[in-house]
Design a binder for these strands. Structure first.
Lengths: 204, 204
DNA sequence: AATTATTTTAAACAAGTGTTTAAATTTTTG
DNA sequence: CAAAAATTTAAACACTTGTTTAAAATAATT
């Protein structure tokens, strides 16, 4: 799997795994080096410092994270289809990377604001013109009139929270991984129906 | 404010602040001691170890966290009112303690499962018979038939996520604290309407 | 093939970690 | 008030932390 990777790529890959699992403060440079099968000094030789390596990892993870979003936003589909596909794709992505939302929200919440701004995924979203599209649809009465912030909170919250809260919910409900995963498939349908009904009141 | 508190209480209070803000690995015993105006050794004299102090803090925070929930569940009101009041109280509580959901979900997700089970808030919830009440209402067709896990995810997700995601959303939307807070008041109403409509389909 | 540049290694650095010790201080008890 | 118990302190413990150094090994260049 990690045979023909360069040293730099190996370290970055290992760092991504470890950072996501344990957070910036929850792991050491030596742990990352060991995970990559390397020496500690190599990590700093290729990435200058633990902080810098972290920034590189976050930037890459964020990019991957918004990539599927952007893709849906840019597509030439009616907003209601975009909504359905957005949820579908989010659940797909999060099933493969369940720890990423928690990682992003929690690790970046603790860093200073400049850290967040250094990673410009905001422009990427704006470039899709999704805001204008929603606004136009609101003017036509197709989409419920509410602030873009609330729409984002509804969409993201109902997609990400089920993955972030997994350990807690599993403990409360006493259910294993398999059961929870099946529950998520059901939940995705509930969320889709609920959000579509609420955001597109005139529909059907 | 913290004048007539005992040493133990002062340490616990300081530890709660620091742990919630920075996480278990994000702070040191000395930092907690300093925040409490104490010596490092005092922390371990009163709480044995950093880990134990953390467990005490988590237990207390969790208790406070589920207290308002329990209160609503036990009340003698129709489910639809309980739903409305639940959301209302959650937003109230979270406005005062916005960092708690993230703290609970993230810090406890990294700990082993036994840690979670040591804090028995599960029984507290079960004792309110809220599960039976929901199930009975579902049989009568008053509440949408869906798993309790999904209901919890919908309720908690739409209440907690807006607070957990605050730093991220603020960066994306470029809005200050005051604006975000106002947005949350609006959002609470949206969430209430959406959830009530979806969970109680026969209503109105 | 010899020289230069790049990569990798082991060792060391100072600073910070959680925790413990033993002495000093305060409070409580008889 | 004196003895005992509980609390607080400063200092030290062994260990880990991120980072650096300088030598060794490998690769690239002439």
């Amino acid at each position: 799997m990690e045979k023909d990777l360069t040293t730099e790529a190996k370290i970055k890959e290992a760092a991504t795994r470890v950072f996501i699992a344990k957070g910036f403060n929850g792991c050491s440079s030596r742990e990352i080096a060991k995970e990559a099968g390397m020496n500690v000094a190599l990590v700093n030789y290729h990435f200058q410092s633990k902080s810098h390596l972290f920034e590189v990892v976050v930037a890459t993870v964020m990019e991957e994270f918004v990539f599927s979003m952007i893709d849906v936003f840019k597509s030439d589909l009616p907003l209601i289809s975009k909504t359905r596909i957005f949820i579908e794709k989010e659940y797909d992505f999060l099933s493969k990377h369940p720890d990423i939302p928690g990682f992003i929200i929690n690790e970046l919440g603790k860093k200073d604001k400049t850290f967040f701004e250094r990673i410009n995924f905001i422009d990427q979203i704006r470039e899709t013109k999704i805001y204008d599209e929603v606004h136009a649809a609101q003017e036509k009465g197709e989409v419920r009139k509410m602030d873009m912030t609330s729409i984002m909170l509804l969409m993201m919250g109902n997609c990400h929270f089920p993955f972030m809260a997994k350990p807690m919910i599993q403990t409360i409900q006493c259910i294993d991984d398999k059961t929870y995963q099946n529950q998520l498939t059901l939940h995705k349908q509930y969320v889709t129906e609920m959000l579509v009904n609420y955001l597109f009141p005139t529909n059907k």
